[in-house]
C-alpha cells in the first residue's frame, strides 16, 4: 500500500512514501465521521420527502418508517385542496421580485458610491452602515409598524418591499468590497475618453460586478422566500398570505390543517424551489456565506 506524497509531487520528484497502517485507519475513521455528520443534516429532509408520499397509517409509528409502502402522490393534491398554494405562491413571487429589483439596484449604486468617490464623512457613514448590521431588529419593529399602520400600509406588500429600495446594508458592504478590488487604471482610461461618471458606472462597473450582484440576488431571493415575522405582522388578509404564512396556517390551525402526511407534502412544495435555486447556484451560496465572514 503505497502512495505518492503530495509534497514529493510538488517538487517534481515522484517519491514513493510508505504510509503506516494508522494513516489508513485514521482516514477510514474520518470518512465514517463525515458520513455520520451528513446523515444528521440530511436525514430530516429525506424523512420529510419520504413521509410526504406515505399513507397516513405509516406515519407516526415507532420505529419510524422510511420507505412508503404505497406511493401516494395524492397527498400533494389533498394538501392543495386545503391550502391555497397558488395565491400564496403568487404573493411570495411578487414580494421576491420587487424586493430583488429594489435591493440590487439601490445596493449596487450605494456600494459604488462608497467605493469610488471621496467625500467628507464617508468613513463615518460606512462605520454607521456596519453598525446597523448589528442593530437588533426588535428596536425598529414597533415604530416602523406604527408608521405603516398610520399610512395604511398594513395589509399591503409595501412594508416588505419598499425598505429594500433604500439599500440593504449587508449587500452594500459586499458590493463595496468587490468594487474596491477592481483595477483603477481601467477607469482612468475611460475617463480620458470622456465617459461620464454615470456611464462609467452603468456600462463598465456594473457588468464587471456581476459576480457580486449574483451573490446579492441569491441572498435576496432566499430572504424574501424565508421571511416569516414581517408577513406575519403586516399581511393579515388571507389573500395576501405568503408561502411561509400559508404553510404555518395550514399546519397549525385546528380544523383547517391537513394530516401529517399532507403537511409534509405542503412543506416539500415550499422547500423545492429554494433547494432548486441552491443547487443551481451552489457556488454563489457558499461565496455569500463566506463573504459574511470576510476580513478587511
Amino acid at each position: 500500500m503505497t502512495t505518492v506524497s503530495e509534497r514529493g509531487a510538488l517538487q517534481g520528484r515522484m517519491v514513493q512514501v510508505r504510509r503506516p497502517p494508522a494513516f489508513y485507519l485514521g482516514r477510514a475513521l474520518l470518512y465514517a465521521l463525515l458520513i455520520a455528520c451528513s446523515l444528521w443534516f440530511v436525514a430530516p429532509l429525506i424523512w420529510m420527502l419520504m413521509t410526504s408520499f406515505m399513507p397516513l397509517s405509516q406515519v407516526g409509528v415507532f420505529p419510524p418508517e422510511w420507505i412508503p409502502r404505497v406511493w401516494q402522490p395524492e397527498n400533494y393534491t389533498e394538501a392543495l385542496r386545503f391550502w391555497n398554494f397558488g395565491v400564496t405562491f403568487r404573493n411570495t413571487m411578487i414580494i421576491t421580485i420587487f424586493s430583488l429589483a429594489g435591493s440590487l439596484i439601490s445596493s449596487t449604486i450605494v456600494a459604488y458610491g462608497f467605493a469610488r468617490f471621496r467625500f467628507p464623512y464617508r468613513d463615518l457613514l460606512f462605520l454607521i452602515l456596519l453598525a446597523t448590521l448589528m442593530l437588533p431588529f426588535a428596536v425598529r419593529l414597533i415604530p416602523v409598524y406604527i408608521v405603516y399602520n398610520e399610512i395604511g400600509w398594513v395589509n399591503t406588500f409595501y412594508p416588505l418591499v419598499v425598505p429594500e429600495w433604500f439599500g440593504n446594508a449587508f449587500f452594500i458592504f459586499l458590493g463595496r468590497q468587490f468594487f474596491l478590488g477592481i483595477q483603477q487604471d481601467f477607469l482612468d482610461s475611460a475617463k480620458i475618453d470622456g465617459a461620464s461618471e454615470i456611464r462609467i458606472f452603468t456600462q463598465i462597473m456594473v457588468p464587471l460586478a456581476k459576480p457580486a450582484i449574483v451573490v446579492m440576488a441569491i441572498l435576496s431571493v432566499q430572504n424574501s422566500w424565508n421571511e416569516f415575522l414581517g408577513p406575519l405582522i403586516y399581511l393579515k388578509d388571507e389573500n395576501l398570505h405568503t408561502l411561509a404564512i400559508g404553510l404555518y396556517k395550514f399546519t397549525s390551525l385546528p380544523g383547517q390543517g391537513g394530516m401529517q402526511h399532507q403537511q409534509m407534502a405542503a412543506t416539500v412544495m415550499m422547500v423545492i424551489p429554494v433547494l432548486a435555486v441552491f443547487f443551481l447556484f451552489q457556488k454563489q451560496f457558499i461565496q455569500g456565506a463566506n463573504l459574511s465572514g470576510i476580513k478587511g
Partner: peptide, 28 residues
C-alpha cells in the same frame, strides 16, 4: 464635484438610514 457624486450615489441609503433605522431607533 467628486464629493457631490459620492453623496448622490449613497443618498438612497442615507435616506433609508434616517427612515428605517434612525427614526425608529429614537421613536421606540
Amino acid at each position: 464635484r467628486e464629493a457631490l457624486y459620492g453623496l448622490a450615489f449613497v443618498s438612497p441609503w442615507i435616506i433609508g438610514l434616517l427612515l428605517f433605522s434612525f427614526f425608529p431607533f429614537v421613536a421606540s
